[in-house]
Amino acid sequence: MDFIKVDRVGKTFHKQGGQPLCVLDDISLRIQKGEFVTFFGPNGSGKTTLLNILAGIELSTMGMVRVEGKPPGHAKVGFVFQNYNESMMPWRTAIENVLFPLEILHVSSPQATRIAENLLKKVGLLEHKEKYFYELSGGQKQLVAICRAYAYNPDLLIMDEPFSSLDYSTTRKMEMYLLNIWKETKKTTLFVSHDVDEAIFLADKIIVLSRLPARVKEIISINLPRPRKLSMLSTQAFFRIRQKVLRMFENE
């Protein structure tokens, strides 16, 4: 059975007094359990709307969505947002932020601490765990956000351009940390990016979306070997995929 099934989904916003705005048009997807899927497309192409629908916090206006055979909202979703400053809790320390979903799930305190510390260790932040959130660097903040999402033990991990406000070298480091955690847990991950290198480097499968209203332009399987290494960014195989993706936007 497909883990996520999206059938002919559409979304149209009806603004008061304005033209109806169609952001998603006839989207159909199949995503398997444990897959790392990236969504690549121009900015403002309805990617966030699609993710919100999959997470169950927005409704589609057409079509059908199933996550593990159920309507979205039933599955546990870990969400990582682009804006970590506005999605995390500055009044808490790094580890307290990671503990938050565990409090919500009523995990006993010693066990929760063990889980949180274990996650922070994997991203190299254990020594900074007692720092307040605002005392961390941008990259560190987003790593805490990723740990928080994992601490929730989600069925589905959704990441909405999580690294796009970070600089080049930080972003590459973050990708390695992310793949490292993903490799161990094999959480189904949906990752939105407008950075073509990132979208290819991380993915099992890259879903290329068009400009508004967003349609699926193409779905490309990435068969670069795992574990991925940064040196792959300059291989022929990588380059071929990159060209294929970029060419799709040339004649628009």
């Binding site: 997470a55 979703v77 870990g78 947002f81 804006n83 506005e86 809790m89 938050f100 919500i104």
Partner: peptide, 21 residues
């Protein structure tokens, strides 16, 4: 921030926890 509430919503945080935490 709206986003913090949205983040809470994705984790199905209860009304009371949303208020206090």
């Amino acid at each position: 921030k709206e986003l913090r509430l949205k983040a809470a919503k994705t984790m199905h945080v209860s009304g009371l926890d949303t208020m206090t935490k």
